[in-house]
Design a binder for these strands. Structure first.
Lengths: 236, 236
DNA sequence: TTGCGGAAAATGTGATCACAAATTAGAGGC
DNA sequence: GCCTCTAATTTGTGATCACATTTTCCGCAA
């Protein structure tokens, strides 16, 4: 016998605990699902049900519906013809295209950050990179996913971009769940730590160097982890 | 006294006319709003209200809510901190970034279409291009917007892309409303018709030529039309 | 004429409901 | 045991409701 919280009769119960600002529930759900996707807590093929997610997050199905539409528009979730929603599975052609798109956009975004952004804190990036090494040591996949995302987007967000950045965010939402499934299946030790090369380029103010480092990081990271097998079912 | 159609009491009225397949209403609304944005029927700064759109399209606010979230995720619509929704206004930096992103993605997408797509009908593209010339002659801006979109995406869709194509679609949704507002303010006659160059490259199977033609078309089209003025208010 | 209040209307948000379609479970027959 | 048909459950969809917030509108005073 838990709290038995039916969460509202028909009349609004006027802030059961807190809901603070406008669209608060939606923002909460959005952040929760995005985080889950980016850290690999949602596996490709996983069915996402409206009421399931709603109950899990303690909200009504309404904000969940809007968030699902939002993420489906970014192709982070897939709406099947039956209306069922699931995390998209990876395919070889999709993977190749994601790699191509990342190589086109992310080095450019990093270069923009270096040119326009004065708030690129190399010391902080170094700290994050150390934590990444630690997470690789302990084998904490979820922490690695989160930290790697953090490292890249600390740089990208410094670009103050409003067009390219959202495109790249969409890409990460699409490949992150798959990357998580192949983590551990292959060696995670890179030949060269391109993150450290990137930091060096940032310190030196070399846009070309940063471009190259990011491109190599993307190519090598996806080259090593990807391509192992795409028929990763992992149902439920 | 009109028809007095409250659109349902509390019980479902079981298909007042047609709703056919699953998510039919949502698909209808989505297509309607997308089309309106791409052809410039929605002006930057225009307020988009939930109940307004719903009544305009003859549906309940529900599918409209989902579509708005969907388009907001693609940055085709903008949700203000008050919750109000409007078509985003263009700014100089946004414009520059859109141009950069288009130049990065669209020539690549066109090249992919040429390499992988066997269904690139040059004759059909030529027909569309003729209609474009006609629309420029009569000054039908809405027709021009629709036809130009059609020309580009006939090519892009032949790539069978599932990653790059949605990114480009998002870009078009973002700049199309603005482009419409500056139509007619400047001369629409290009120095060179890059569409015809593109068709020639397609016929010759020249990926490099197609890349160059698309890049020139983008650069020149946005160079001419854009940059005129960004403080285009056009309220209501 | 120009501000300034305050009432009235409009708007987004979260919740619940009703229903159809689809999935799942189960019973019965081969 | 395996397949099949049916019943029960689950799920997405469209609609409506209640409410807080915001905006709009109108009258009144300076």
């Amino acid at each position: 016998m838990e709290t038995d919280k039916p969460a509202g009769k028909a009349t609004r119960e006027t802030s059961p605990a807190i809901l603070l600002k406008r669209g608060g529930m939606r923002a909460h759900v959005d952040q929760a699902v995005r985080s889950a996707l980016l850290t690999g807590r949602f596996i490709p093929g996983k069915a996402v049900t409206l009421r399931g997610l709603a109950q899990e997050l303690g909200v009504s199905p309404m904000p969940v519906r809007e968030v699902i539409q939002r993420l489906a528009a970014e192709h982070a979730l897939e709406v099947l013809p039956n209306g069922r929603v699931q995390v998209p599975r990876m395919t070889a052609s999709r993977f190749d295209e994601v790699l191509k798109a990342r190589l086109l956009l992310e080095p450019e975004l990093a270069a923009m950050a270096l040119e326009t952004g004065a708030r690129l804190d190399a010391r902080q990036l170094e700290k994050i990179d150390l934590e990444i090494d630690a997470s690789l040591g302990t084998g904490d996949a979820e922490a690695y996913m989160a930290l790697n995302h953090d490292f890249h987007f600390r740089i990208y967000e410094a670009s103050r971009s409003t067009i390219l950045l959202p495109l790249v965010e969409s890409l990460w939402l699409q490949f992150a769940p798959f990357m998580r499934t192949v983590y551990g299946r292959v060696g995670t030790a890179h030949l060269v730590d391109w993150h450290k090369e990137a930091i060096k380029a940032i310190r030196g103010g070399s846009a070309a160097g940063l471009r190259a480092a990011m491109a190599s990081d993307i190519r090598e990271g996806m080259g090593l982890l990807g391509r192992s097998s795409f028929a990763v079912v992992e149902d439920e």
